[in-house]
Write a protein that binds this DNA or RNA. Sequence first.
RNA 1: GGGCGCAUAGCUCAGCGGUAGAGCGCUGCCCUUACAAGGCAGAUGUCGCAGGUUCGAUCCCUGCUGCGCCCACCA
Length: 880
Amino acid sequence: MTANTQQDPEQYGSDTATPADLPTQYAPAEVEGKLYERWVERGYFEADPKSGKPPYTIVIPPPNVTGSLHIGHAFEHTLIDALTRRKRMQGYETLWQPGMDHAGIATQNVVERELAAEGKSRHDLGRAAFVERVWQWKAESGGQIAGQMRRLGNGVAWGRDRFTMDEGLSRAVQTVFKRMYDDELIYRAERIINWCPRCLTAISDIEVDYQDDDGELVSIRYGEGEESVVVATTRAETMLGDAAVAVHPDDERYAHLVGKRIKLPLTDRSIPVVPDAHVDPEFGTGAVKVTPAHDPNDFAIGQRHGLEPIEVLDERGIVTVHGPFEGLDRFEARSTIVAALRAEGRIVSEKRPYVHSVGHCSRCKTTLEPRLSMQWWVKVAPLAKAAGDAVRDGKVDIHPQELSQRYFDWVDNLHDWCISRQLWWGHRIPVWYGPGGETVCLGPDEQPPSGEGWTQDSDVLDTWFSSGLWPFSTLGWPEKTEALEKFYPNSVLVTGYDLLFFWVARMMMFGVYAMDGVPPFHTIALHGMVRDEHGKKMSKSFGNTVNPLVWMDAYGSDAVRLTLASGANPGTDVPIGEDWVKASRNFANKVWNATRFALMNGATVQGPLPAPEEMTAEDRWILSRLNAVITETDAYYDDYQFAKLSDTLYHFAWDEVFDWYVELTKTTFQKGGRPAEVSGRVLGEVLDVLLRLLHPVVPFVTETLWTTLTGRESVVIAAWPADSGFRDEAAEREIGTLQRVITEVRRFRADQGLQPGQRVPARLSLDGTSLAAHEDAIRALLRLEPEGEGFAATASLPVAGATVALDLSGAIDFAAERKRLTKDLGLAEKELKQTTAKLGNDGFLAKAPDDVVAKIRTRREAAEADIARITEQLAGLPTA
RNA sequence: GGGCGCAUAGCUCAGCGGUAGAGCGCUGCCCUUACAAGGCAGAUGUCGCAGGUUCGAUCCCUGCUGCGCCCACCA
């Protein structure tokens, strides 16, 4: 067995830099930018479709070109970058596909707000000029986003950068649209849709945000005398469009009215009373006003009873009915109409506060208006079935698995998807209408029939239509490109759980449809949302949002990345605060200084690793631990446990390598000779591997240190460490004992009030403890002088078979020592009592595993020994 | 109304049948020539409440309370 952990046996170069190249503090700002540009120039991040290596593909969830990136993007990018960097090191042909999303309605709104500030509207510019203006905005925003991604260190294939509205992706959109149109999966129909009176467009069901709003429920009497009925509503203005009153078919209270017509107040119309099972007789009066043109349920009732929808509001929510209310905004109309009804004595119970959930536009928060409208739809059922089955059949894994239930609930209950938007920024619907009412759908490169009078549909597609094609459109589809062949399906999709429906489900549907049933990824890894340091949701209105650039400037990109990765437990939200970023920066600095120290002491990666027989126990111990950590790290990576892997590496590096191994080797280095050479090589090895393990998460500091340490080109293309299988349990036990001895004596010293630097004469009895070889290290770490003339032990500490006798006659505080020993005695007695009780428990002995029983036996023996020892010490202590 | 999840140290969170853990914060001592962005040592918890299973429960089961998220509906 060998302790060599190198995956590739190639020798390192000899031009190892000197520690003089490294300043005493890590200054991220000075290295990060240069390193990134170098990586890009060398083409490390580009993906070669012709490569013989196995592919590893992740497409970026394309950021919206609505401005700049927020901390949530930095989080997502950190995870993706770490995954791809590791796979690249593992020898995969990795593609992190970059790109951005035109984000139809969101971006159009941003530019419209800009125009509004100039006192203009998009109509002042006209469609072509407005779209041109949005392209300008896109260039600006896109540049900012790309800059932020570079700062963060994202290893994306810039050579393959795409945009949802670039030529190729637009062809993909048109190709899919045409194919689905021909397959009758896309159709046009008039339905009640969610209409935003501010954005002036239809939106789909999932773009509706429901909020509880304070409303008022008013009860209104329709009809006269015997033939009257009371209905309740929060939207009195819609009564102008009422087409019926509905009651439950079995409701005897209204049986006499069914089939009759009653007078609609404030109008000269009368409306029928219809029986409909949708009505809940228990709710309110059991009678419902029916407004088919302005309510989805009412529309359904209307269809069942052949009622004509009566539109009373226009696209801006203004009343269009001739009469006293014409021209009023919907909210003005509501109060005005209630007042008018009251004047006529129609309000039978005063309006009362009523909290109910109301749909708002997810983009501009305006209260939505259900509206009857002609729109384009995707027939979702067959696609959703296939998308659901892909997960059910195990072709695609959703991680964490709990979220797959949500996915199924959604794809199994989908309504058809409204894909047309009355916007200007987006992919125009490729349908043309002829002068004689003809309709043709065009594929790419097809022209509308010649002749006068052909016009293209003025609507654009929902932005999620194009992003739904992202996993293959970015690879050149519909062309049969080499990239498509190599990199589809994608290996993993990394995105937030908030996009499960908006984006993930759509990609699944389009993927299985367009790519012959092959779903777009093997694994869907869903992460949570970044929250503030108190776990609160970040929002602009709350003022707790974070610009990642600010922290990157202050603490470095690595610090931001490490903080984000450390918080990433699968599927759960990630709190982040500045103090944590600082702590990560401290870690980067610690790694920096440890490496600096190592280089100053002759740590090297030159030559083969010495044989274990030549090594000290601490050498073998740290290599044993190192290999165990490699395996642990791999397991966490494969399970997307970023917090766990970050934590593991953080503690291994800081606690074990820096605080113990480096400290223990100091004495070896001081003495020099062959043991120092061996430890220098081991330390070089440990750092080499550790830096490679850390690189995917903290790429910059590791690159600087690793290239200095090894003299090689770049850790980006270094081999990912492999567990050599080297383990040395004896060494691990030995060093564990050593640590106990040192900690115990340190505690004693601290309890005695000794200054850390104060040197104390001591006699060490280490025979038979395996610690004999560590005497020098023990003395160095504990500041113990050799026992000189007149040595008189005043304290004797037996630890793990060893005894450390100290002459504290110059410094000791006997009263404090007595107090400490008394306390220890109490603890030991308690321990003895507990363990004795446990071992006297037959049930425990019968069922507990052997190792647990053995552990408790050992504990009892230790407690007995402690009691004896402490009692003896107390007895021997001079009374002050 | 349906579904999912959470309640552990002051804060943010791991752990999940066998003496409670981390980071930050806190206390004390130290500029011990890699690092004060550091070192060493230390304190802090009825593991939400009530039952149950078990030799043993923070961990499993049931109920309760509080909180969060998703979906649907709300005249």
